[in-house]
Amino acid sequence: MLEQYKTIMEGGTGEITEKKSRFIATVRPVSTEEEALAFLEEMKKKYWDARHNCYAYSIGLNREFTRCSDDGEPSGTAGRPMLDVLLGEEIYNVAVVVTRYFGGVLLGTGGLVRAYSKAVQEGLAGSRVIEKKRGITLKVTTDYTGIGKIQYIAGERNVPVVDSEYTDKVILKLLVESGAAEELQKAITEGTNGRAAIEKESELYFAVLEGKVYTFEN
């Protein structure tokens, strides 16, 4: 299991023009090969009048499903360069289709490789790329005298407080990176002189985007 990895939060598009040929890249987050193939069919229908709809995708944290296609372009000039961009950026669970409208001027092998690669880069630039980190939710129960110290410790380490409950006691749910969980628990125990009860609740992936915390099963 990866401790952290990049993926697509929200797909986007990008477009370039090379010698009158239009290259339109559409990026989509996918979690299964079926989703990737359905996305490809969707793009083929949308751009039914285009000369080529080349694609690349990589699915699974071990890249179990990684495929690409030149869709009629000279072998190795489209699909593989597109896939190389995804792999080079270390992005997982992503599919991209680059649609080409031929402009009447041949680009040559090198020109095609550069154009398809650049189109994918533009598509990624138009998408929301996030970094998911493996984390643990900790349920921390304390009395009111300990809450200030716990909030200080969490804030000092940029650990999000994802939920809180105030009754006769205080329950805080903290979301911490897996590798930092043990040190955080030790700091809270020492900071509250052992008055805080700490319970591990669940393991999950999370990402922080524009100050907001998102959680994921994988």
Rank of each mutant, 00 (worst) to 15 (best):
Y92K: 09
E15L: 10
M43Q: 15
Y205R: 02
A197P: 05
I24D: 08
K186V: 04
S21M: 06
K173G: 02
F23D: 01
Y166L: 02
V120E: 08
E35V: 07
E35I: 09
R80Q: 15
G146Y: 03
S21Y: 10
T142H: 07
E210D: 15
L124H: 09
V94W: 05
G135R: 08
G79V: 05
S164L: 04
F216V: 06
G194M: 04
V30L: 07
L209Q: 10
N218H: 09
E33Q: 14
H52R: 08
V208D: 03
G104Y: 04
C68W: 09
T142G: 00
R28D: 03
L209F: 12
V98I: 11
P81V: 08
P29N: 10
A95T: 14
R195N: 08
N193A: 07
T109Y: 13
P29H: 14
G111V: 11
N62F: 00
E203G: 11
G103A: 09
A181V: 13
Q185D: 03
E201H: 07
E182M: 09
G111R: 01
A78V: 13
R28Y: 04
K6W: 08
Y144E: 12
S178P: 00
R51C: 06
G126S: 10
G108M: 11
L175S: 01
M82Y: 11
Q151G: 15
G12T: 09
S117F: 10
I59W: 04
